[in-house]
């Protein structure tokens, strides 16, 4: 296994709001520990024909490029690049060239720009166009072979009756469809520790080693939580916590706190998780269209801070 193979590959989706930019500090923390390859992605929906009156907006975009101006997505990506450069993640000599690529056939939609970080990893800025943003993010995560995807969530969760009236947030839609572990980011500042949520089942056990690797990469304190739905299930929850704690200890991490609670799992996890940088949960077994009804995705929807769904 080469050094490159071991490197964490993180895809950060820029453009969904300020939360993804805030998450770059967390990305830097991960990269400091494991020298990550980082891809910053901006997906712009394809322009629709009738709306531009029959002359494709591409003509206007080509004109903008010919003036030497940057397309909107490029500006967002450059802002993210500047944040990473300020954090020391990008080597000082800059690369000013956008390379055109044609992944889905838009001659002015898709560009790539690459930098290197001091430890040897790469940082790429990727501008893509697609009719469906979710599909493009899923596709790019596969192409990049990402280990972890970070996408900004809406800062305030949608609650009450509005939850049934408003369309599903893009971040949650992507979380349902993507095959890689994903962080729905909200105020994603490193340093306040991870809340690792476990259950007495195989999926949860399979999640623990990944949670350990992220804990190592972040060098963050760990709290382990299991929520039993009834008092009778408390013993099983306690068992899950103890097992997970043992696995963490065997891997050189002493959990900061072990918690067992009884009640509605999504409510309790969201409430207790508020004090942490990140809530770490295993992905549900449900198919993509039913994931909203799983605890992990429910927590991602209702939490006020970041949630990592490990896949």
């Amino acid at each position: 296994m080469t050094e490159d193979d071991k490197r964490l590959r993180i895809l950060v989706c820029i453009g969904g709001g300020p939360e993804a930019f805030t998450g770059l500090k967390f990305v830097h923390r991960l990269s400091e520990q494991s020298c990550a390859d980082i891809a910053l992605l901006y997906v712009r929906p394809l322009d629709s024909g009738l709306k531009s009156g029959g002359m494709d907006i591409r003509v206007a975009r080509e004109n903008i490029l010919e003036w030497g101006l940057e397309l909107p997505g490029m500006a967002h990506l450059n802002k993210a690049r500047d944040i990473l450069a300020d954090l020391g993640e990008i080597e000082t000599e800059s690369n000013d060239d956008w390379q055109h690529r044609e992944v889905s056939g838009d001659p002015v939609g898709e560009f790539l720009r690459e930098y290197h970080n001091p430890c040897g990893g790469t940082i790429s800025l990727r501008l893509r166009t697609a009719t469906d943003v979710t599909t493009a993010v899923v596709d790019e995560a596969d192409r990049f072979n990402a280990d972890l995807v970070i996408i900004g969530g809406s800062p305030e969760p949608v609650e009450g009756i509005r939850k049934f009236l408003t369309p599903k947030a893009l971040a949650l839609k992507i979380a349902s469809h993507i095959d890689q572990s994903i962080i729905v980011a909200r105020h994603l500042e490193p340093g306040q520790g991870h809340l690792v949520c476990v259950q007495d089942n195989e999926r949860s056990r399979a999640m623990v080693p990944k949670a350990i690797s992220y804990a190592h990469a972040c060098a963050c304190p760990i709290t382990i939580l299991s929520v039993a739905e009834t008092e009778e299930e408390r013993t099983t929850a306690q068992k899950a916590v103890d097992e997970a704690a043992q696995t963490f200890r065997l891997n050189g991490i002493e959990p900061h706190e072990l918690l067992v609670e009884v009640g509605n799992p999504a409510e309790i996890i969201s409430e207790l998780g508020y004090d942490f940088s990140l809530i770490v949960m295993a992905e549900s077994e449900k198919p993509w269209f039913a994931k909203s009804f799983s605890v992990a995705h429910d927590v991602a929807a209702r939490s006020r801070n970041s949630v990592l769904i490990v896949k």
Partner: peptide, 16 residues
């Protein structure tokens, strides 16, 4: 609305 006229759609594409 953005989609009302082609000119609005074109200037909206600037991202500003």
């Amino acid at each position: 609305t953005v989609i009302g006229t082609p000119a609005s759609t074109i200037v909206y594409s600037s991202g500003y």
